[in-house]
């Protein structure tokens, strides 16, 4: 049985991240959560993750500000933007900054899990190649 994909959910909405962690767990993924940029960076420095689900609009540092710091701490991790803030400009800016994809809340669970698996498989394929 392959190792479960390790996902870090970074979101300031308490209920959103706790339920998402349970749902991802039920889908066979290993998930943990952080309420903001600083906590996420501390967790990434502490243990390995494959995919980060990153919110954009958060108190303190925004997702746009945290993204380059995540890439500096964990260069191999894939970052998926998951936000309710609909802005093509921000999406383009964050994908240019290294994010793998941009998903808009509310995102159907199967679509979200499919996207997480897809970026994980791509990362593995690139790593193997």
């Amino acid at each position: 049985m392959p190792d479960p994909i390790r996902v870090l959910v970074v979101d300031d909405e308490d209920r959103f991240r706790t339920t998402l962690v349970k749902l991802l767990g039920a889908q066979g993924l290993f998930a943990e959560a952080a309420s903001g940029g600083e906590q996420a960076l501390a967790l990434l420095a502490e243990k390995p993750f494959d995919v980060v689900l990153l919110d954009v609009k958060m108190p303190g540092e925004s997702g746009q500000e945290v993204l380059p710091r995540i890439k500096a701490v964990a260069p191999g991790v894939e970052v998926l933007i998951l936000t309710g803030h609909a802005s093509v400009d921000i999406a383009a800016e964050m994908i240019a900054g290294g994010a793998a994809d941009y998903l808009l809340k509310p995102c159907p669970l199967d679509e979200l899990v499919g996207c997480v698996r897809a970026v994980y498989d791509r990362r593995k394929a690139v790593g193997a190649g």
């Binding site: 909405e13 209920r15 959103f16 339920t19 998402l20 349970k22 749902l23 039920a26 609009k57 936000t83 309710g84 803030h85 609909a86 808009l104 809340k105 509310p106 995102c107 159907p108 669970l109």
Partner: peptide, 16 residues
């Protein structure tokens, strides 16, 4: 933004 966030939580709770 203000509506998408609660809608996302509603969708998740339904999934759960």
């Amino acid at each position: 933004h203000e509506i998408n966030n609660p809608m996302a939580i509603i969708a998740q709770e339904s999934d759960w």
